[in-house]
Simulated assay, not measured.
Amino acid sequence: MKTAAPIRKIFEGVARRPQMFRLFDRHNQRPDRWQTDVAPLYNGEWFEIDEALYDYMLDILPPLWMRGPIFALREFLTGSTTSIFFALRIDGKPRYFHGYCDLSDPYSVETMRAAIFERGSQPVRAMSREERLEHIWSSTADAYRGYAGDRFPPAMQGQRTVMLWSGTNGTVLKLLDDLTDDEIAAKLPVHVRHLPNIAA
């Protein structure tokens, strides 16, 4: 039985056009890029866009389907996974989102819609540790992020890494999941650095 991918926010704020296209390809450096199925990496990821990008993506090709303000991109990322675009009214305001859903699961689109709505309806702007790490990964240039290679112990190989500036040791490579709270704060943009923590 296939297990549904966890739904996760991967970028804080509203992505502009260059950011959106970078987010579409945020796993391009993955190991064994042509030998492994990319769907598990992308399924469940979502981020906010603006109305102009929502309209732009709607106009590129006729959608695979459109259900009210939600439509599926005709070109699949891989297998049964494709881009879904949402226009949702949250707290009385229209907002727009992109997510990757596996259409072989008939509940995936509604599950993501509900998760985005719930996350977007929280009264206080905040970020979980996981969202902070995903934002760092999403916004770090390719030259400064990658995957652990053979210099790491076998159990760590293939995990995501980022470059850090360590005053005394210069530039160091560290597993993304092992960043300390101070290292996370240093890697985040100033406008989100001091947001309160929320439970994952």
Rank of each mutant, 00 (worst) to 15 (best):
E131Y: 10
A72W: 02
Y144F: 15
G68P: 07
P154S: 04
R74V: 09
R67W: 09
T78F: 10
G149T: 00
F85E: 12
F76P: 08
P154A: 09
R95P: 04
V124D: 00
W65R: 12
E134M: 03
F85R: 08
Y56G: 05
W65H: 07
Q122W: 06
S80E: 08
M127E: 04
Y54D: 00
A72E: 05
A126M: 05
P94E: 04
C101A: 11
L73C: 13
I60R: 05
K93D: 14
R145L: 07
R95F: 10
S108H: 02
E110M: 13
L77W: 09
V124S: 02
L77D: 03
T111P: 15
Y100T: 03
P106A: 05
F152E: 07
P63K: 12
E131A: 00
P154N: 06
A141H: 10
G120A: 09
E75F: 08
R67F: 07
Y107C: 15
Q122T: 03
I90R: 03
G120C: 05
R119M: 12
L58K: 02
D55G: 13
R74E: 12
R129V: 14
D105E: 14
S139T: 12
R67C: 11
L88W: 10
P153I: 05
A126E: 10
M112L: 13
L133K: 13
S139P: 02
A141R: 14
W137G: 04
D102T: 07
L58V: 10
T111R: 11
E130C: 10
A52N: 13
A87W: 03
I84D: 04
E51G: 05
Y54F: 09
E130S: 15
S139R: 15
Y144A: 15
G149C: 07
A143E: 15
Y96F: 12
L77H: 09
D55I: 08
D105M: 01
G79M: 08
I116C: 08
P123S: 12
Y144E: 11
A72S: 06
L58S: 07
G120L: 04
G92N: 06
A72M: 01
D102A: 01
I70G: 06
S108M: 06
V109F: 01
S108A: 14
W137D: 01
F76R: 08
Q122A: 02
T140W: 07
R132S: 04
E118G: 11
L73T: 09
I84Q: 00
I70K: 03
F152T: 04
G149Q: 07
R119V: 09
Y54W: 09
H98N: 11
M112G: 14
D50P: 00
